[in-house]
């Protein structure tokens, strides 16, 4: 039973590119996070063993990439290429303010018994009722929602609003206003609600050039916030995951994961 559960979880994680504990890092890395003139950026995406190096797999970008302009409109990625080790795309950032670049995956996995046979199904939540018999024996339904994102600002930073879906970072300190030696406050929300007790991990990039990862564990307080002082400038990988019953359907166990690439600037 335990084995079946964990292998199903692993399969789910693989399918969703969701970073389970000790899984690979999944990230989007923009060429710039602060721009003083509207124009193109290019973004690398990868599933890696080190931060931020392309050494494992490309990001599987299909219809799951969302580039959101400051006014909430969608920007289409250009020149999207998936290589063997990384995925690359360009984005033309024409408006002033903060862009959110996110790869969002959401999927359901169900398994149940028909006689001695184990049935499995994976698909969008909307299809669950039509594809899986509600009274199936030993029915287990798991939902995975992952968000992998980064932020880029042209000119003056603008507010980053929560989408209200799944686990996400909601800035108190703006994500393009992070500076070495200064305390930054960030918050996590689940379905738009500030959530206490979310455990997050922060790792500085350039892991290739040091012996210890130097992971920093952070936990959100009663207001769903945590505060951290970045000692060094550079790119950081922030990741968090929580599990619990799905909102709307208590029978579905849901796993929400989040990762962000954050750039911390020198003073």
């Amino acid at each position: 039973m335990n084995l079946r559960k964990s292998s199903a979880l692993a399969a789910l994680a693989l399918a969703l590119g969701a970073p389970l504990a000790q899984a690979h890092e999944v990230w989007l890395l923009p060429s710039s996070t602060v721009l003083s003139k509207a124009g193109y950026i290019t973004v690398d995406g990868a599933v890696s063993n080190d931060l931020f190096y392309f050494n494992h797999r490309p990001l599987m970008v299909r219809d799951n990439l969302f580039i959101t302009a400051p006014d909430g409109s969608a920007v289409q990625p250009e020149n999207l290429v998936q290589g063997q080790l990384r995925t690359v795309f360009d984005a033309n950032l024409q408006a002033d303010g903060t862009y959110r670049l996110a790869m969002v995956n959401s999927s359901l996995m169900a398994s149940w018994k028909e006689g001695t046979e184990t049935k499995r199904w994976r698909g969008p939540k909307a299809d669950l009722a039509s594809k899986v018999p509600a009274d199936a024996a030993e029915l287990v339904v798991r939902e995975g929602v992952s968000r992998v994102e980064t932020f880029v600002t042209v000119g003056k930073p603008s507010a980053v609003k929560a989408t209200g879906q799944g686990l996400e970072l909601v800035p108190v300190t703006h994500p393009n206003d992070l500076y070495a030696g200064e305390a930054a406050t960030l918050a996590f929300t689940v379905d738009g609600k500030p959530t206490a007790g979310v455990e997050a991990t922060l790792i500085a990039g350039d892991t290739r050039y040091r012996d210890e990862l130097g992971k920093v564990k952070l936990v959100t307080d009663a207001q769903g916030r945590f505060t951290h002082t970045f000692a060094e400038p550079g790119r950081y990988y922030l990741t968090a995951m929580i599990a619990g019953p799905s909102s709307g359907d208590q029978k579905i166990e849901r796993r929400l994961s989040y990762t962000a690439t954050l750039e911390v600037l020198p003073q």
Binding site: V34, L35, S36, K37, G39, G155, K156, P157, D177, Y179, L265, P266, Q267
Partner: peptide
Amino acid sequence: KWLKDLRQWWRRSGR
């Protein structure tokens, strides 16, 4: 394009 490289000024008021 490079005004942002006046990093402190850009943060304080340039932007």
